[in-house]
């Protein structure tokens, strides 16, 4: 079953990615990205990581892409009219480096790995319960730090996003 899930979702994800890159207008690109993220959640499910899959759908496909769409809508003017450039950037780096990256990356790890059979996953492998006790156990600091990072992002977004208006205390 995992094999089927992996192949379909993997293919859809790559399709989404490719379409997103080739899109002319940003809005359609964003929608393709949402599609790719949801397919990626499927792949995570294939890897028996249910918690991460649901997180992916909720946070990535849901929150971030909605944010992107909001911003694209707000910047109504220049964003929509065929902004995708005729690649005035010198073409060759943009085209040459990614396939190179693929070769290097794939070559790198294929050197040591064979496609051995998929080991059976212990029961409740990726379940939220397992992640929770790890989260509050060994990674407690990370748990605290992530709240601070979000706080910083909050302050940052507020200070930058606000229009010039009288702050209550200034």
């Amino acid at each position: 079953m995992e094999a089927f899930l992996f192949f379909t979702c993997g293919a859809l994800m790559l399709l989404g990615g490719v379409m997103m890159v080739l899109q002319r207008s940003a809005v359609v690109a964003a929608l393709w990205l949402v599609f790719a993220f949801i397919a990626a959640a499927g792949v995570f499910a294939a890897l028996s990581a249910p918690f991460v899959a649901i997180m992916q759908v909720l946070v990535y496909a849901g929150a971030i892409m909605v944010l992107f769409l909001f911003v694209i809508m707000m910047l109504h003017g220049p964003v929509l009219d065929g902004e995708r450039k005729r690649l005035p950037l010198p073409m060759w780096p943009a085209v040459a480096i990614p396939p190179l990256a693929v070769l290097v990356l794939v070559g790198g790890w294929l050197s040591g790995r064979k496609a051995e059979a998929l080991p059976a996953a212990p029961e409740g492998f990726g379940a939220p319960a397992q992640i929770a006790n790890l989260l509050l156990g060994r990674y407690l600091l990370a748990f605290e730090l992530i709240s601070i990072v979000l706080l910083v992002a909050l302050i940052g977004a507020l200070t930058l996003g606000l229009r010039e208006r009288k702050l209550p205390w200034s």
């Binding site: 940052g156 200070t159 930058l160």
Partner: peptide, 11 residues
């Protein structure tokens, strides 16, 4: 993140 905002912060 903190330094991005500091650098880009002057409204």
């Amino acid at each position: 993140l903190a330094v991005y905002v500091l650098a880009g912060g002057v409204r």
